[in-house]
Design a protein around this nucleic acid. Structure first.
Length: 219
DNA sequence: CGCCAGGGCCTCA
DNA sequence: TGAGGCCATGGC
């Protein structure tokens, strides 16, 4: 990959950072809470996830033992506001059972590929959820790709709109230094841009990336 | 009312 | 191995 692409990939982050400042956008009192949030937020607005997490907190179930002590119906009722609550109840329960064998602290001592493979073996934990957990809860430098990333970087003219998760992730791994804080904030900035400007119907007015963007320039 | 949101699984070619 | 159907709440 050319040095020019590397330079621009980092420069895009700089432009986003200058616009919005550092985004501590994944709130959570613990690594466990962050990991739970990663499952609950699948295809779901964060505001709905907050309600679900709040229900778990106020019923004192936002712990490994707390969740495992619930029936699937009870768990589903608590996380109902996050949507897909029957599926996510199973996912959460299975994930907690997984954590009894592989606590987050044990994942922190592994190399990235080993920890990632283990997480992906849990039903309900796909690429993005696993990588979000690794990046924000475990603290290992993986670049998290999502629908915003795909949309934004295809509009910028960097990648194909139909690119796979793995190929898009490889793009960032090849063009950025493996820096935990950079990966964390880069993804956060991408999501913010996707919400504020690069929506399904783009709102290019005031977009901090307009100078870089093929789509914006074609307007 | 429809669209969208911080996806992933199962099925079926 | 990838496309399609399904899961479901809440904000706008």
């Amino acid at each position: 990959m050319s040095d020019f692409i590397k330079y621009v990939t980092l420069d895009i982050y700089r432009a986003l950072y200058l616009e919005s400042g550092y985004q501590d956008w994944w709130p959570g009192d613990s690594d466990f809470e962050i990991a739970v949030g990663a499952i609950l937020t699948q295809n779901t607005a964060w505001s709905n996830v907050e309600r679900a997490i709040n229900n778990l907190k106020t019923s004192h179930r936002l712990t490994l033992e707390g969740i495992l002590s619930l029936s699937l119906d009870e768990l589903a009722t608590l996380i109902r506001p996050s949507g897909y609550f029957n599926q996510k109840a199973k996912y959460l329960y299975d994930f907690c059972k997984f954590l009894t064998s592989y606590p987050i602290r044990s994942l922190q001592k592994m190399d990235l590929d080993a920890a990632r493979s283990l997480l992906l073996s849990v039903r309900g934990v796909g690429f993005e959820t696993a990588d979000s957990m690794l990046l924000y809860a475990v603290g290992l430098p993986v670049f998290v790709v999502d629908a915003y990333t795909k949309r934004i970087f295809s509009r910028l003219g960097f990648t194909d709109p139909e690119i796979s998760y793995t190929d898009l992730q490889d793009f960032f791994h090849k063009n950025l230094d493996k820096d935990l804080e950079l990966f964390r904030d880069y993804h956060a900035q991408v999501v913010m841009l996707g919400k504020d400007h690069c929506k399904p119907t783009p709102e290019c007015g005031g977009c901090p990336l307009a100078d870089y963007c093929c789509f914006s320039k074609s307007l």
